[in-house]
Structures are given as C-alpha cells and as structure tokens.
C-alpha cells in the first residue's frame, strides 16, 4: 500500500475527519423496514425534512509520531471514542481520511468476545485470536498471560463463575500481551484491585517506553500523566488544544 501520505516517523494522521451520525432510532444508516418506508413516503410528500444529525467528529486533523503516547481528553460526547473507533476500523469516516501505520490492537472493551460458558483458557485463545494473535503466539504467551492475571487456579473454570474483577483481569492480561504497533486504550484500568492496578501501571510503563504508539482515552488524570507525553483536548468533535498533559488538563479543568 502507498505510504506517501504518511511521513516516515508518523504512526497516525487524521485529515479533516468528520463522522456524522443520524439521530433517532436509525443510527447512521437506517432503521427497520417501517422507518425506512415511512421516511421514504415522507420525503416523497416533502413532509419530513432530512433527519437530524450530530457530528461526533467535525473536521479533526492531527498527527501522531511513531512511539508517541497521546491522550485524548474531553467531556463525554466530545468524540474521543469515535476517534479510536475510526483508527480501529470499527467504523469509517463520513468524510476525511485517517492514515495508520502498522498493526492496530483495540483494547476498547476488555473481554469483548469472552464467552461465559467457555473456560478461562479457552477464552484466552479466543480473545487472543480476536485481538490478532495467532494460535502459536498465544500458546507461547499463555503462561505469561495466566501469571499476569494471577488466575492459575481458575483457568479451567467457565468464566461465568468468575467475579467481575477476575473477568477483567484475564481480559486485560490478554490485551497487554498482544503484538501490535498501535494500541488503542479506552478507560480500561478502572478495573481490578489496587495490587492488580499497580501491575497494570507497570505494564503500561513498559508499553509506553517501547516503540509502540498509544492512543489513550481516560478521565484518570494520574494515569494519563504517568503514561502520556502529549494530550489532545476534544470538544464538540473538534480538537481545541494540543500540548503537554499538564497544560491540556489545566485547560480542560478550566473549561
């Protein structure tokens, strides 16, 4: 694929990215047949104006260098998660372009794809595959994953018997062992007890110091300050400030 649009040391670039959602039951695209038929009829009779829309992202441009750790900061609905979803290719922009270099792992929802009826071990393989690891790669890492989660005794138990904390610990352990160039993280460290959070912190620091690129959405100031070297402030789908974490947090707190 061509790489002329992305500089040698660039990992992510947003170019005038807009993401528009249609409001109401239909989402971005359509509803059920009844909505569709009704809408069509309305348009034919020129009764219904175009459905109301909201721009989750309204012309966002920024660039992230390889190995940089960037926090997205802003109020709920500012467009942080939408930005992550675009990088993760979960959805596509309405206009504009997102460029991404290398493999992306989206840790947007820890344990997405875990199945309650399957054992911890089976779920490690499944979730690992979902995050893009091959079977062999998971087999190589399973001991490390289990040890990190501290769930050696429970690996052959169905995860429906797990507590919520255990569930998240297992999910996070798999997630931090993925092999990707760009990691997307959305408020995941809120889980687990103090001791496990400390371990996650350490792991995050290792990831931060590596050449991996991090795009991080969090409302936890302490965590953001420890892991990120730059922050973007988003408000109403626009980037309103770009700078050091401390500066951005001050601006955010003042707004």
């Amino acid at each position: 694929m061509s790489s002329e649009a992305l500089g040698q040391d660039e990992a992510i670039r947003f170019e005038g990215v807009c993401k528009r959602y249609r409001l109401g039951r239909g989402g971005a695209w359509a509803g059920d047949l009844r909505d569709e038929a009704g809408g069509l009829l309305g348009r034919l009779l020129r009764r219904n104006p175009a459905p109301p829309t909201v721009d989750a992202l309204a012309g966002v441009s920024f660039s992230v260098r390889c190995g940089e750790n960037v926090a997205l900061v802003g109020a709920n609905g500012a467009g942080k998660s939408t930005a992550l979803k675009l990088v993760a290719r979960i959805t596509v922009p309405t206009s504009g372009t997102v460029w991404v270099r290398g493999r992306v792992a989206s840790l947007i929802q820890i344990g997405a794809g875990f199945h309650r009826e399957l054992t911890g071990r089976e779920n490690v393989f499944l979730y690992g595959a979902i995050l893009g690891l091959t079977r062999g790669a998971i087999r190589d890492r399973i001991d490390a994953i289990v040890e990190f989660a501290g769930l050696e005794r429970f690996m052959d138990t169905p995860v429906k018997r797990y507590s919520r904390g255990m569930f998240l610990r297992l999910g996070f352990s798999v997630a931090v062992h993925v092999d990707a160039d760009v990691l997307l993280i959305d408020e995941v460290l809120a889980a687990g007890d103090r001791e496990f959070r400390e371990r996650c912190f350490d792991r995050m620091r290792t990831l931060v110091q590596s050449d991996k690129t991090l795009l991080f959405v969090s409302h936890q100031r302490e965590l953001v300050e420890k892991t990120c070297d730059r922050a973007l402030l988003l408000a109403d789908g626009r980037v309103t400030a770009d700078g050091s974490v401390a500066d951005i947090w001050r601006t955010y707190a003042a707004s």
Partner: peptide, 8 residues
Amino acid sequence: NDVRRIGP
C-alpha cells in the same frame, strides 16, 4: 510497516 488508509 503497511500504511492503511481509512476513508469513507
């Protein structure tokens, strides 16, 4: 690495 373009 491969560069990916994510557009409409």
